[in-house]
Design a protein around this nucleic acid. Structure first.
Lengths: 348, 348
DNA sequence: TCTCTTCCGTAAATCGATTTGTCATCTACG
DNA sequence: CGTAGATGACAAATCGATTTACGGAAGAGA
């Protein structure tokens, strides 16, 4: 059938002149075997291109070599920009690669809505990206008793050790410091209205930094449901009313287009009139004109860390504690007073 | 264990007072059963929340309910822009949803390089997106005897009926007609150097249309390996040398940023000095300033079509012939001579 | 009444691997 | 020489479902 790897354990056993049991033991390093027999069987298996059928293995051992990845993409995201997130694409891709390094494959789980009657997926564990308050994904996984690791903290249980976290607060500080060092006086923050731990930490860090440096606070919450128009209106209002900000920190990738449009509509230039920086790097930030300074969350590192944690959890080991992946500040033209168009390149 | 759905067929059998065989037959509509018994068993199964364990089912029946999705993402795509393709993200997401509608889950297959020793994936079938000449993905799948459906034609076998195609030639014509109707006289084409059927059809259509309308041909091939710099240089050369084009058709999503930068560097405005349109819609096109006219390939439709085709193939049915998903022209500011900044919105 | 169908339902084999329990064979030592 | 203990390999049970092949009961016809 469509089963990959036609040769079965029986074929190998026959070829090596031993029993299937012995082959299994030899290849899995279990029982007691003469080292020479073991080596011989391994060579035979190699030669025949034998690979254990995951299905059969999973049936007996309860371990399938399949991990689920559940992105926070919403139910009716078919339309346009709701799901077009560069960051998640990189994450999914990196996750696939990280797990494959040890032979595991990654399954994408569809949106929450349809998962009510979640088909019993043959899954060892799951990665949940950006959990939000009372996230139904976590509820489902808990009910099914599937070991889980989150990317970013679970707002309901921020100290859960099975978590790959970013130091979001530190990222915001870094951006603020950078903009301040470039001469920004009034820095505004566009932050998701969402319920994630992430936007909460952004606000918190912004507030703390602002009071410490005696700056005005210009926080503008924007709905994640209308990222484009929401950001556009928020920025327009910011730029028209009162003393206008001379720098904007964009808290979510999806707010980039709306922000840039509002700035252009106001007849302002980046970075001459307004400095701009983004808390999440992605192609929207890189492809803007000019390219936007941003914090690279390093999804590849996060994926690697998540895979390590999940494997550890599956092995029943103790949690090593939350794993923090440091973001990297990518300085680009949008935050530099002295714009040089020729070096228009992309940093690293 | 991590197996979802704890109740087994035995539990249902016990609760309904019948044998496991009867339960299996009742739920799968096999064998001969008293309709009342069948109904009773179905109710019992429902009440207990019984779901067949895919693993066990797959072992016997050779059908796992797992489909593979193999994107044309390259091996060391960890770095920046190689894989940041909105289109593929939408495709993956839509695919996940389309398959889940009938209970199948989607697995992402990692890059080709690492798949040499492809772990025998428990997969019924596979979807290969944008196959190129002598695509190793197709080779692997053929060797493993896994039924496959491609999205876009296989250049090596363009008439393969197990294929969801776009009418790329028609899309290019549509774009050219549209630009011409907006007054464009000299239209250039930026086309991937790649080996896919896709770029070939783009060139072909452009060539045909140009001769039919007595236009100069300004085809510029750009390497997919350096989409940014490649597009930037190509467009710069176009704009500086000779009579410059007054419109550009961008053949691949990844060329958008480089193109826009080159235009800006030349001190030109879109759409006042140059009209721009893209052959593949995505967030790069939508988020540009101004938003770019583009052809929406409708990945959701493609995913649906691919799922239908694959299921049919798995059932051993005859191919219904290639399935063409029509693209939709999304007209935006970049191709309209009369720019109206206030209606800066996004079409549909 | 006896046989021949038909109808329902079940027991048992099967898928491919892992795990448990058993059984020779060999070694060591009193 | 006999026995406890270690060693190396295997037979059989198992995982949870599907599929095949069979058997008992009821109904039909002679």
């Amino acid at each position: 059938m469509a089963v990959a790897g036609r040769t079965t354990i029986r074929d190998v056993a026959a070829a090596a002149g031993v029993s299937p049991t012995t082959v299994s033991h030899a290849l899995n390093g279990k029982g007691r075997l003469d080292p020479r027999t073991r080596a011989r069987i391994q060579r035979t298996a190699e030669r025949l291109g034998y690979q254990a059928n995951r299905i059969a293995r999973g049936l007996r051992s309860g371990r399938y070599g399949v991990q689920a990845l559940w992105l926070p993409i919403e139910q009716d995201a078919a339309s346009s920009d709701a799901l077009t997130l560069d960051y998640y694409m990189r994450l999914a891709s990196a996750m696939t690669k990280a797990f494959f390094a040890r032979g595991d494959v990654v399954m994408l789980i569809p949106p929450v809505g349809s998962s009510e009657k979640l088909v019993p997926v043959p899954t060892d564990g799951a990665i949940v990206a950006d959990p939000y308050d009372n996230d139904p994904r976590l509820a489902v996984l808990r009910r099914l008793d599937i070991p889980t690791v989150t990317i970013e903290r679970n707002p309901v249980d921020p100290d859960d050790p099975w978590c790959v976290a970013s130091d979001t607060g530190h990222h915001i500080e870094t951006l603020l410091e950078h903009l301040a060092s470039e001469g920004a006086e009034r820095i505004a923050l566009l932050v998701p209205e969402a319920m994630g731990a992430w936007s909460r930490e952004e606000r918190q860090a912004y507030r703390t930094w602002s009071s410490q440096h005696g700056r005005d606070r210009l926080t503008r919450p924007v709905s994640m449901r209308t990222p484009f128009a929401g950001a556009q209106h928020a920025v327009r209002a910011l730029l028209l009313a009162g003393p206008r900000p001379d720098a904007i920190v964009i808290g979510a990738e999806r707010f980039v287009p709306g922000t840039m449009l509002a700035i252009a509509e106001a007849g302002l230039e980046v970075p001459e009139d307004v400095l701009v920086a983004v808390a999440v790097d992605g192609n929207l930030a890189r492809a803007s004109l000019p390219p936007l300074t941003a914090v690279d969350l390093q999804p590849e590192q996060q994926a690697y860390a998540a895979a390590q944690l999940l494997w550890r959890r599956l092995d029943g080991e103790e949690p090593p504690g939350q794993w923090t992946v440091p973001g990297i500040l990518r300085v680009r033209e949008s935050s530099s007073r002295h714009r040089s168009r020729s070096s228009a390149g992309r940093s690293s």
